[in-house]
Amino acid sequence: MSVPSIEAVNLSKRYGSFSALSNLNLKIEGSKCVGFLGPNGAGKTTTLKLFTDMIRATEGKALINGVSVHENKKKALAPVGSLIESPEIYPALTPREALSMVAEIRGMPRSERKRKIEKVVAEVKMEEWLDKKVGKFSKGMKQRINISAALLSEPEILLLDEPSTGLDPRGMSEVREIVKSLKQKNRLIFMSSHLLNEVSDICDEVAMIDHGKLLVYDKLSNVVSRFSGADGGAIIIDVGLSREIDDQTVSGTISSFPGVVSAEKLEGKNLRLHFSGGIENQEKLLSDLVMMKIGLISFHPSSSALEDTYLNLIKATL
């Protein structure tokens, strides 16, 4: 039994004296979504381009399922769908034709092409535009087609470089839902983003990079609890409920759970917990909340906690 994997081994990229990526060692295995964070020019896109052979490494190797991307690109990229830097599609082609080209390149049987193309185009809500020329599309519409091209072959591994770029809020939300649905289908998703709420919402793990160097790679909750720095290491957890909860339960019962520093009701039916107590206590907290039968529907570290973590880590390298 093998699992999808991507691995950077001493991966470096230099442009003259400028080091875009320095000695990156990172191995990601299994079905999960990993957010790749860092400021502009940190080396995120450089890393993704090295994994798709768009640029050549100065040193080191980019491996996909153990196969070197540069030495055997066809084999390495066979199980990969990618979206790097909002590509343009030949303006005279229609989405159906552009996606047919990708399908043929990837060896998709003729009998499946039409159905799969229509399916992925429906996923990105572009059915009405399937037979219109791409040249007339807005940036967001092109990005939707690019996303559908990455999904077309149902790849085991998805490499996405800021997939929400150019999309309106509805489009961003749809992309998040698409990525979430892919997680249910045993995919490895490695996604760079500047949108911390997006990463917080979708990803199980995060890798942070700055000045071409990897700062951290771990589970999202671990990273947040180790590096957020707020309240002596406390993290913020947003809890979503399906019904109203009374103040007594919040300030009494929930605030007294192990690790909970404070609990507050937010607008609507949400709670915000300041929590300090490690991953085991977090697991227990979730279990306790479920046992309370208060209509728990979501439980995740808030984007502001990730933002604190991000700013702390990036500030440290300035």
């Binding site: 699992v3 299994g30 079905s31 399922n65 199980p79």
Partner: peptide
């Protein structure tokens, strides 16, 4: 650098690609 745990998934299906001439 800590290594997150590995989830077990099914085997990686390697798609059969067309020959370079076909591409």
């Amino acid at each position: 650098m800590s290594k997150p745990s590995l989830k077990s998934v099914g085997p990686v299906a390697v798609p059969s690609l067309p020959t370079s001439i076909a591409q």
